[in-house]
Amino acid sequence: MIFGYARVSTEEQNLDMQIDALEKFGAERIYKEKLTGTRRDRPQLDELLKVLRIGDKIVVYKLDRISRSTKHLIELSELFNDVGVDFISINDSIDTSTAMGKFFFRTIASIAELERDIISERTKSGLQAARARGRKGGRPTKKEDKVEMAVKMYKSKDYTIREITEATGISKTTLYRYLDKSYKGC
């Protein structure tokens, strides 16, 4: 089956041009949405993704109608590939049932992977540089006297967890983590 997906960003915009192009292409069922592309929740797109079967085709007027970002487009193309669905963008002349269409998506996927790797390398370098300057990441450590007091209160069995956390400012999770360490050290 050939499914169409049409989206405009606001209620005032018109879907007619996209619908005409999708119908001309042969879309048997068209999912229509009037939502900004940056929104994560798109009910009609979600519905479309639920009904896909091997051999189906998804047709859009332009790539930016179906995806929020390059990353999202790649995620969708991987999903389509896994399900065995061809993806076609009329205006961009992309058809993943052809060798060039598959090449296009592999190229985009490679570029996105490169971008992720570069970001990861920059982050690691930044953390390394911060450590070299004596900065340490992560959550700040709790004051030892407060931790010791919380552990003593707990071990005395005279206080509830709530009383201990209120008196010391140590969270229940942190208290249990330090208790676990103190018992393992015994």
Rank of each mutant, 00 (worst) to 15 (best):
E166Y: 01
L114Q: 04
Y5G: 05
A129Q: 08
K32A: 05
L15A: 04
I108C: 09
M17T: 14
E47P: 00
S93Y: 05
S77W: 03
Q44W: 02
D82S: 15
A99D: 09
S110W: 04
T174L: 04
K50S: 11
L73F: 14
A150Q: 11
T160P: 06
K184C: 00
E78G: 07
R133M: 09
R133A: 08
I66N: 03
I164S: 02
L179T: 11
T174N: 06
K50D: 11
S120C: 09
T123N: 12
V151K: 14
G169E: 00
T70W: 05
F87H: 05
A21V: 02
D95V: 07
D41H: 09
E144Y: 08
N14G: 06
L79H: 09
D56Q: 12
T36K: 02
L79P: 00
E75H: 06
G55L: 12
E33P: 05
A112C: 13
L79E: 13
G126P: 03
V151S: 02
D64E: 10
S171I: 06
A129K: 10
L45V: 05
D92E: 15
E11M: 07
R122F: 12
L114M: 13
F105L: 09
S67Q: 00
K24V: 09
K24M: 01
E113M: 07
L175P: 04
L175D: 00
K102P: 04
G138C: 13
G134S: 11
K155V: 12
L76K: 04
K102H: 07
L35H: 02
A6L: 03
Q128S: 14
V59Q: 05
R65C: 01
T141L: 14
E75Y: 12
K157F: 01
T38L: 07
S97D: 07
A112G: 14
I119A: 02
K172L: 00
C186R: 11
S125E: 13
F104A: 02
S120T: 11
S93T: 07
K143S: 14
M17E: 09
D64F: 03
T141P: 12
D145K: 15
E115R: 06
G185V: 00
S67H: 03
Y159S: 00
K136L: 08
L73E: 08
S182M: 08
K152M: 11
D180E: 15
A6K: 03
K50Y: 01
Y61H: 14
R106K: 12
R139L: 13
I19K: 08
L35D: 02
Q13A: 04
L52D: 02
S125Y: 06
T38A: 13
K155I: 14
N81D: 15
E75P: 04
Q128P: 00
G185M: 12
E11I: 11
